[in-house]
Design a protein around this nucleic acid. Sequence first.
DNA 1: GTTAGTTATAGGTTATTATCTATGGGCTGA
DNA 2: TCAGCCCATAGATAATAACCTATAACTAAC
Lengths: 314, 314
Amino acid sequence: MDLRHISFRLLEVFMSVVKTGSISETARRLHLTQPTVSLQIKRLQEAVDEPLVIMQQQKLHVTEAGHELFRTCQRVFGHFDDYNDFLAELKGGERGRCKIAMVNTAQYILPKLLGPYSNLHPHVELPLEIGNRAEVLARFERGEDDIYVFSHPPSLEHAKAARFLQNPLEFIVPTDHPLANQQHVELSELVKYRFLLREPGSATRMLFESELQRRGLVLSNSVQMASNEAIRVAVSSGMGIGVLSRHVLPIGDHGFKVLTVSDASLASHWYFVIRTDRHIAHAARSFLQFAEYNLERYLDAHWVRNELYVLNLS
Amino acid sequence: MDLRHISFRLLEVFMSVVKTGSISETARRLHLTQPTVSLQIKRLQEAVDEPLVIMQQQKLHVTEAGHELFRTCQRVFGHFDDYNDFLAELKGGERGRCKIAMVNTAQYILPKLLGPYSNLHPHVELPLEIGNRAEVLARFERGEDDIYVFSHPPSLEHAKAARFLQNPLEFIVPTDHPLANQQHVELSELVKYRFLLREPGSATRMLFESELQRRGLVLSNSVQMASNEAIRVAVSSGMGIGVLSRHVLPIGDHGFKVLTVSDASLASHWYFVIRTDRHIAHAARSFLQFAEYNLERYLDAHWVRNELYVLNLS
DNA sequence: GTTAGTTATAGGTTATTATCTATGGGCTGA
DNA sequence: TCAGCCCATAGATAATAACCTATAACTAAC
């Protein structure tokens, strides 16, 4: 049989004929005329090259070939029904994939939203990509993900960014550091000591360095380290001073002390970024909507800065 | 999604695009131009109202919706492949149904063909209908079966009949009957005794009675019985003379004796009858072809009269 | 920076499909 | 016997599907 000359409409009509056992009745139900249905069946039989129904004693009898075709149609339409269900869930954001790329530091924040979201929407896949700022930026350029999380606003074309959380930076020193017990320290005092910093592209470092530049200060000595954890551990073991997002600092005593720097309050923001030159994936919209409504609930409300409305979700 | 605007061709093209990961390559393989394929995919996406593939970095990426549709298509085409296999078997006579209606007496003959045929073609259903001549004739009129077996040529419209076996009639008498030991008996002698006969419509009786009429003879005494078996048993117990097809007589001694009637040799033929106003079912053709080639093998070759060629099978 | 490969879009042609109305013929049951 | 069902067929039309060519725009590689 030649599938090319068979349409779904044709099969629908055929199924109705088998179900009702009548061409006229089918015509009535499908709001067609009797000759139309008659002709459709004829065409279908030509495509199959085998009689599907035969008139016998004024009644329509379905042949073996017809019965088997009917069963085949049932299965086929069943699969399309399943696909429609799938589509509905996909479009409703209940299913599908929302790929999120984030800079390293965001690892400490995003899971607080992702966990509850994932529990509510178990069929949504949430693959995470974590890299340094340059890597995530490259992913954005290539459009590899649905949502990007940065702590420094990337002013790019085809992008919409929305703040959702403040990102205060803290200076930490070893507990035995000369400055550890001073009530108030000034930035100019700090720069005399050795600093442990992330790579040049990182948002934390950029923010810190632009502040130094603004104030005309220069670091006397700095060591580059690959991760926030490495810096934390290095500070605890006395290697120098670290500058870290408050969100990555564990609560309680961990062998370092947070300084109160009187003349420098460094803070950036966390942003959700999406591309505007693509349609946003349903699951991604679903996640961002969830975030918009639940930021205060799952993140430290004190730092939340909910500006997700700029993304025009909904 | 609206199935009405989706054709199988469209899905075929889509599947090729997913498989090759390229619109141009698909165009080449399916002997289409690239814009054609491009447009088809666009139309399919409109019907589904959801992107199925997206261009990213000069490469085609299949979305979740696309993947799921692809899987759906695989299943759907799988079902149609199965149906095609079914159709092929049906058309080859390897599958399907061949409904045969036969008069009572044929029960003794047809199984000899049906058994071997059924072993060779295990997927062919062979429902049998058995009745007296009138009943089978009525079934023929209504076209309820694929093949009819008669022993008297029904000269009907829309029918083709082909002889395949002689049907000699024999006179049987109880072993203690006055005629039982006579070498030669004449018909005029016989009619003085009581006869056991089938109902008026039966072929055996019709043949016998027309012979009597031709010869100007009249039965003095006859009793009607409903089946060949009943007649056989009745003859054995001395009730009278029977006229039966030779094919229904068991071999060996069974309490009756076959007469040699010198001036009457009654014989009709067995016929396969099919309607000419319907397409013959593939399985029916298959069975008749089998019969045409194997009559001599499975029936008593002495009585075979193979004229099945008149049915124009093959 | 030119070439070669990709996809997308515009515009047009042809074949097919999906319908319709009108009509004819066959049964059935009043 | 005739009305009232059924299905089949003929003939016509409007929509659309399935293609094409030409062209534009983008990117990767030489």
